[in-house]
């Protein structure tokens, strides 16, 4: 088990190192998020939406930005291995579960970095009262981000082996992510409006969804990777 973790960390560290050489995924994710945030903030801002509607509409906007930003960059981990023809070498040097876990850790890191920058900016620019229940906000973001990373990682592994990768990534991910995004928006809106009962419900749903996806992905990844 510890050797699996060590291998996975090595894969994630390798990915991080190559990522910092080109910064393709980081740029795609960050620039997409900042551009949409600028557009949303410029056209809507904090005062265009009535006070009562703010928690729901602004939470939906926040998750739309996170969702599309992750669709822009989270497929890179696997696609770049295929494009640079390094996948066979990686297959030789690490077991499939270590590769999957390493790539998942890398995507989780990327998503966490995105959220750390994006969410405070969003709160400041859009005037969303999320800081009142800061602990719950972190819980919702963590649970939603975790499930998001798990699903995009396994779908990225699938599309890396197919043609027309960019378009296919969004087509395959979106339907699987939709229930998750619904729960996440609900949870964030609950945090913003102070209705902790709703936050509990959506957290439970997100954690169970993420947990099931972890089990299924771990079981199925060797099939995709070996194919």
């Amino acid at each position: 088990m510890s050797s699996l973790l060590a291998e996975a960390l090595a894969v994630a560290a390798k990915d991080l190192r190559t990522e910092f050489r080109t910064r393709v995924a980081l740029n795609a994710l960050g620039l997409f998020a900042l551009t949409t945030l600028a557009a949303v903030s410029y056209t809507i801002g904090p005062y265009r939406i009535a006070e009562a509607d703010r928690p729901y509409l602004l939470s939906a906007l926040l998750w739309v930005v996170i969702l599309f930003a992750s669709l822009a960059g989270l497929d890179r981990t696997f696609v770049k291995e295929e494009e640079s023809h390094t996948a066979p070498l990686l297959r030789l040097s690490a077991g499939p579960h270590a590769v999957w876990l390493g790539k998942l850790l890398f995507n989780l890191g990327l998503l966490a970095a995105l959220m750390v920058i994006l969410v405070p900016l969003f709160i400041v620019l859009m005037g969303l009262p999320l800081v009142l229940h800061f602990g719950w906000l972190v819980a919702v973001l963590a649970a939603g981000g975790f499930a998001l990373a798990v699903i995009t990682t396994i779908v990225a592994a699938i599309i890396a082996r197919a043609m027309t990768r960019g378009a296919l990534f969004a087509v395959l991910s979106l339907p699987l992510l939709l229930p998750l995004v619904i729960f996440a928006i609900q949870g964030t809106a609950g945090v913003a409006s102070g209705e902790i009962e709703i936050v509990h419900q959506s957290l439970r749903a997100m954690i169970s969804f993420g947990g099931i996806m972890v089990v299924v992905s771990a079981a199925l990844f060797p099939v995709i990777w070996g194919e």
Partner: peptide
């Protein structure tokens, strides 16, 4: 093989 993996992933989403 890829379609089979996706079908299983999709079916896991159905109960939700």
């Amino acid at each position: 093989a890829l379609a089979a993996v996706y079908a299983i992933l999709a079916f896991v989403t159905v109960p939700f």
